[in-house]
Amino acid sequence: MKSVLPILTVLFALVLIWYGAAIGLNAQWTRDQAARAGVEVSFSDILSDTLSQARPKLPAPHQVAVELYQSTWDEEVNGRRGIVATGTLSNRSLIYHGWVTLSATMLGFAFGTGLGILLAVGIVHSKAMDMSFMPWAIASQTVPILAIAPMVIVVLASIGIKGLIPKAIIAAYLSFFPVLVGMVKGFRAPDTMQLDLLKTYNASRFGTFWRLRLPSSVPYLFASLKVGIAAALVGTIVGELPAGASAGLGARLLSGSYYGQTIQIWAALLAAAALAAGLVVIVGVIERIVLGRMGMRS
């Protein structure tokens, strides 16, 4: 708890820098407007104008906060397309777009994690698989995998697969490698003494796996799940970028950049950040509960 104050200080400094940058970046436009109108502007005019432009270069934090409120709560509760008025989520609200992104992320994350764990089991038990596959799995982490995202989307669309699945495939691919590498490490975490002990019990391979390797891999599992779920979200958002996607936080970013709606971009960005933070925190809470019940809490 003693780090609350330092964190708040750093956050406060960040907001201050943000305001300063907003004033600095937007001042030029204000001065140009004033010069065109032939009016003299005072410093306080610049100050108030830079923080309330409709399409600023950098929107001030409070403008983004207002946009966030309007495109979530206000749109759903008071808007005529909101969930209160129509019973379905409004397609102009960030909740709807966030939900689209979240569902693709979760689907891909589940697939990627499952596949990663299965392959890790295979790699730990088969020397041939370990020696042929692991170098490639490690090398593939150095490859900018996201570059293939637009191709996956377009190719799958051309054979008739659209919507959730292509994005989920990219998310799965991105969350797959951290989980695989982490789980291989986790399954190998038991030391020789523990493995020897199970040998003296005449434990089968399956028994060793079930009673020793799997439990001791759990801390590694959660560490890689945290990396994996953040990677899956990034994958989904980038997967929504190619033209054609009309829903999702990535599509919202792209349309904002097409129409110069900077406030909308920042709101979508903050929504994505909140989503990522929420997912990581949820995984962290589950980790605490599980490790606590297993008696492994550090």
Binding site: P6, I7, V10, K226, V234, W266, A268, L269, A272
Partner: peptide, 29 residues
């Protein structure tokens, strides 16, 4: 140490965010 204690959690948090999203803004700038 005060700044470090504040910066480390914030940095860890930001490192997990989808920062690529900032790309359209920086392209505009």
């Amino acid at each position: 140490p005060f700044l470090q204690r504040g910066l480390l959690p914030v940095g860890n948090f930001v490192a997990a965010l989808p920062i690529v999203g900032i790309a359209p803004i920086l392209v505009m700038w």
